[in-house]
């Protein structure tokens, strides 16, 4: 499992409250990565705030920003999965409309906005390409707090930032297979047919990629 470790250093908390402003001095590689993760986490917290604004105030401006950032990615994801451009446009709109309608169900302590939108897009894809039902797990019972804890939300957004960075740093061969596994609507054996790689190679590269991600997330 990619353990979601908490790393709540003060600068990150400052980022969350919008107090952080970038400085200029030269940074070592590690510090630069950390800096990148901080800005990325701040961006994620901003998307979370946008969803909350839709939930509480039906905020169209917040929605327009979310739309500009996420809808083109959703459309591209659907096209890569074998949907025609017209259908992908239509479905990307549906996915964003679902985000609005389900804004009250979004829990930033459980998912980043990118993760949440991905799951909505994936379900829509199953719906249109396969015309299948999608059995979903039972929801966990509500905890004592109706409003998710800010610290938990921040910790989760930081973890997802780290994951995104780790994914981008995977060796090309491994990252390509992870992308195929998520994009193509293909099973591992279908990826084998498509790439001409032996099934065993595909499985071991994906396993290596997951090990790497888990190592980074520790």
């Amino acid at each position: 499992m990619l353990t979601l470790a908490k790393d709540s250093t003060k600068p990150d908390a400052a980022v969350a409250m919008g107090l952080y402003s970038p400085e200029k001095p030269r940074l070592s590689g590690v510090a630069r990565t950390k800096r990148l993760n901080q800005t990325d986490t701040a961006k994620r917290m901003m998307w979370v705030a946008h969803v909350t604004a839709i939930r509480d105030n039906e905020d169209r401006e917040a929605f327009a920003e979310l739309f500009a950032h996420f809808a083109p990615r959703v459309k591209s994801f659907l096209m890569k999965s074998g949907t025609s451009p017209d259908m992908a446009e239509e479905c990307a709109q549906d996915v964003m409309a679902t985000l609005w309608r389900k804004a009250a169900m979004f829990d930033p302590a459980k998912a980043s906005v990118s993760t949440w939108i991905f799951t909505i897009a994936r379900n829509r894809r199953i719906d249109i390409l396969r015309k299948e039902r999608r059995p979903e797990p039972e929801e966990l019972p509500w905890g004592p707090e109706a409003e998710p804890n800010q610290e938990d939300a921040l910790a989760l957004q930081q973890e997802t930032s780290k994951l995104g960075a780790a994914l981008a740093e995977l060796p090309e061969k491994q990252r390509m297979l992870i992308e195929k596994a998520y994009f193509g609507d293909l099973s591992h054996s279908e990826i084998a047919e498509q790439t001409g790689l032996p099934l065993g190679t595909i499985k071991s590269r994906i396993r290596l990629a997951l090990e790497r991600l888990r190592h980074v997330m520790k």
């Binding site: 990615r73 959703v74 980043s112 990118s114 993760t115 994936r122 992870i178 994009f183």
Partner: peptide, 9 residues
Amino acid sequence: DAVGGEVMM
């Protein structure tokens, strides 16, 4: 799911 979100983004 989070990996999927990051791949998409």
